[in-house]
Design a protein around this nucleic acid. Structure first.
Lengths: 116, 116
DNA sequence: TAAGTGTATAAGTATTATCTTATACAGATC
DNA sequence: GATCTGTATAAGATAATACTTATACACTTA
């Protein structure tokens, strides 16, 4: 996995924005289809297009899914994807960010190449 | 905690960059003071000033600590801070990103305000 | 079919990031 | 003190983000 760290950076970057965190929080903490895009925009205090663009970022990494209902669009969190990313983050912290457990004998380390 | 989500966004943003993830990875997976700033720059394939600037971002959120040795500077990971952030991320995923466990009775939810 | 509602995309602007080179600064060594 | 090594900061170029308004698009309803 050559670009694993690159993918992780992309995911973390998508989450590294206040508005986008709030979008996830709003969608997660309410029943499905409680708020459409315009509702969310209002809660964020930004325009509807700006909101759509933030949603697009989260959709691109698979965290959000589109559910069209007539001329409205509701977004839901793909919990599986989010859980997968959480696992990746766990592993990143555990394996890449933690002191070497192989006494710096990199040839013995199974993670040597994964996070380069 | 009014800006908790804002702080989380800042931390995630600091981690949401390939070069910065690599800096952490390099520092974590080698013995202390193995590589100075210029060494890291070379490994990243960017200039020394660019590297210093990335380091500054990580230092600003407390993840890195400066250790001057003569005219060289070595950076080490503040594991406590990093562990703290990991806990925050865990909590973020568990509490803010997970379906409401209070049946959407927000007045009963202890996290109602924390992630707004 | 025409009008209405809501969303995505286009286009443009402002802000922020990321890099570069040049230079100032800190400390070691001659 | 003068010079050397390495790092941080300054200044500036370029690119990427994040917003805005305008408009195209999808769908509903009269």
């Amino acid at each position: 996995m050559k670009d694993h760290i690159k993918n992780m950076a992309e995911v973390l970057k998508s989450l590294g924005d206040e508005k986008r965190l709030k979008i996830i929080k709003i969608l997660a903490s309410n029943i499905d289809e409680a708020f459409c895009v315009s509702d969310i925009a209002q809660q964020l205090g930004i325009s509807q297009p700006a909101t759509s663009q933030h949603i697009k970022v989260l959709k691109n990494v698979g965290i959000l899914e589109e559910n069209r209902r007539g001329f409205r669009v509701f977004y839901t969190i793909n919990s599986d994807v989010l859980a997968e990313y959480k696992k990746d983050i766990d592993e990143l912290f555990k394996k890449a960010f933690q002191r070497c457990q192989y006494n710096f004998s990199c040839d013995k380390c199974p993670y040597n190449n994964k996070y380069q």
